[in-house]
Amino acid sequence: WKVTVKGVEYTFDNPEEAKKFAEELAKKKGGQIHYKDGEFQVH
């Protein structure tokens, strides 16, 4: 499971962890999460 933040990729074994990480980042940066092709992208 991948989380991509401004072109930087983070990989997680667990989808729950990936989702949590993406949500935290989106909150911090005031961005939005897009889920696409099996990965979370924070913009």
Rank of each mutant, 00 (worst) to 15 (best):
Q32P: 06
L25S: 06
E39I: 13
T4Y: 05
G31P: 04
K19P: 00
I33Q: 03
I33G: 04
F12A: 00
Y10L: 02
T11V: 14
G31V: 07
A18E: 00
V8P: 00
E16L: 12
G7V: 01
E39K: 05
K29L: 15
V42K: 03
V5K: 00
A22R: 03
K27C: 14
G38I: 04
V42Y: 05
V3R: 00
P15E: 14
K28G: 11
E23R: 03
Q32W: 13
E24F: 09
G38Q: 10
K2E: 03
I33Y: 04
Q41A: 10
G31D: 06
T11D: 07
D37S: 01
E16T: 11
F12W: 01
E24N: 09
G38R: 12
E17N: 07
K19A: 09
K19G: 04
E9I: 12
D13W: 06
P15T: 03
A22K: 02
G38E: 05
K19N: 03
F40I: 11
A26D: 03
Q32Y: 14
G7E: 05
D13K: 07
P15Q: 14
K2S: 06
E39C: 05
H34G: 05
E23G: 02
E24Q: 10
P15L: 15
Y10F: 11
G38M: 08
Y35M: 10
A26K: 04
Q41C: 13
F12S: 00
K29S: 15
V42W: 08
V3G: 01
V8W: 09
L25P: 01
K36N: 11
D37F: 01
Y35D: 04
E23Q: 10
V3K: 00
I33W: 06
G30P: 05
G7W: 02
Y10D: 00
A22Q: 03
W1Q: 05
E39S: 08
A26E: 04
F12C: 05
H34Y: 13
D37P: 06
E39Y: 07
V8K: 11
G7S: 04
A18G: 01
V5S: 11
T11L: 15
K29A: 14
F40A: 03
Y35S: 08
F12V: 00
K27M: 11
K6G: 15
V8Y: 10
K36F: 13
K2M: 06
A22E: 03
E39G: 05
I33T: 04
G31T: 07
T4D: 02
F21I: 01
K28L: 14
Q41R: 06
L25Y: 12
K27S: 12
E9W: 02
D37W: 00
E17K: 07
F12G: 00
G38D: 04
E17Q: 11
L25A: 10
D13C: 11
D13T: 10
E24W: 12
K20V: 08
H34S: 13
D37L: 00
E23F: 07
G7R: 01
K29Q: 14
H34V: 13
Q32A: 10
V8L: 11
V3L: 01
W1K: 05
K2R: 10
T11F: 15
N14S: 13
H34L: 10
G38W: 06
D13H: 06
G38K: 12
K20D: 07
P15F: 15
V5N: 06
K36V: 14
L25T: 08
V5H: 15
H34N: 09
V3P: 02
A26I: 14
Q32I: 13
E23L: 09
V3F: 01
E17V: 07
A18T: 00
Y10W: 13
Y10P: 00
D13E: 09
G38V: 03
K28T: 11
G7I: 03
